[in-house]
C-alpha cells in the first residue's frame, strides 16, 4: 500500500502518469485486508481496546466471569459479522461487483470475502480463549500486554 500510493504520487508528479485505479484498490483491497485480517491477530494479542479500570478493582472470580462474558460477546458479534459478511459476499460475487476509476473498471467482489474470513478467524481465537479460561488450561496465545498498550492516540 505504502509503495503503491507512493508510486502513484511520483508517477503523477514526475511523469504525469498516475497509476490507474490506485484509490479503488487501496480502499477496497488494502484497507479491507489490513483491517479484517488483523482483527484476529489483535484478538490473539488482546490488543482490542477495553476499559480495565472497574474489573481491576474486583476479585479473581467476578473478574474471570466478566472475562468469559466479554469473550462470549466477542464470539457472538464476530459470528454475526461472519454470517452477514458471507451473505453480502455471495451477493457481490453473483453481481460481479466492480468500481470505476477514471475510464477503468476494477473488480472488487473478491474483497468482500475477506470479511467473513477475518471474522471467522477472530471468532475462533476468542472461542479458544474462553475454553482455556474455563478449563484453566494455559492458553497458547501469545498475549503481550505490555506491547499492546501501544495503542495510538
Amino acid at each position: 500500500m505504502m509503495l503503491h500510493v507512493t508510486a502513484d504520487v511520483l508517477g503523477r508528479y514526475l511523469f504525469n502518469a498516475p497509476l490507474p485505479g490506485t484509490i479503488v484498490v487501496v480502499a477496497n483491497y488494502y484497507m479491507i485486508i489490513l483491517v479484517f485480517i488483523a482483527l484476529g491477530v489483535a484478538e490473539e494479542k488482546r490488543a482490542h481496546i477495553s476499559v480495565e479500570f472497574l474489573t481491576d478493582l474486583m476479585s479473581e472470580r467476578p473478574r474471570a466471569a466478566f472475562s468469559v462474558l466479554a469473550s462470549a460477546l466477542t464470539i457472538a458479534v464476530t459470528v454475526i459479522l461472519m454470517i452477514a459478511g458471507w451473505s453480502e459476499a455471495m451477493k457481490k460475487t453473483r453481481g460481479g461487483a466492480t468500481m470505476e476509476q477514471g475510464s477503468q473498471m476494477i473488480e472488487i467482489w473478491q474483497s468482500y470475502w475477506l470479511i467473513p474470513l477475518g471474522a471467522a478467524l477472530m471468532a475462533l481465537i476468542a472461542a479458544y480463549r474462553v475454553i482455556a479460561t474455563i478449563t484453566g488450561a494455559k492458553s497458547g496465545l501469545s498475549e503481550t500486554d505490555a506491547d499492546v498498550k501501544f495503542i495510538n492516540d
Binding site: 503523477r12 504525469n16 502518469a17 498516475p18 484509490i23 475510464s103
Partner: peptide, 22 residues
C-alpha cells in the same frame, strides 16, 4: 492534471492529452 469525477470526464481529459486524476 484535471480532476475527473467519472468515466466520461476521464475519457475527455485523455482525448485532449491531459491527465485525468481521480
Amino acid at each position: 492534471r484535471l480532476r475527473a469525477a467519472g468515466a466520461y470526464w476521464a475519457r475527455w481529459a485523455e482525448s485532449v492529452g491531459a491527465v485525468p486524476v481521480s
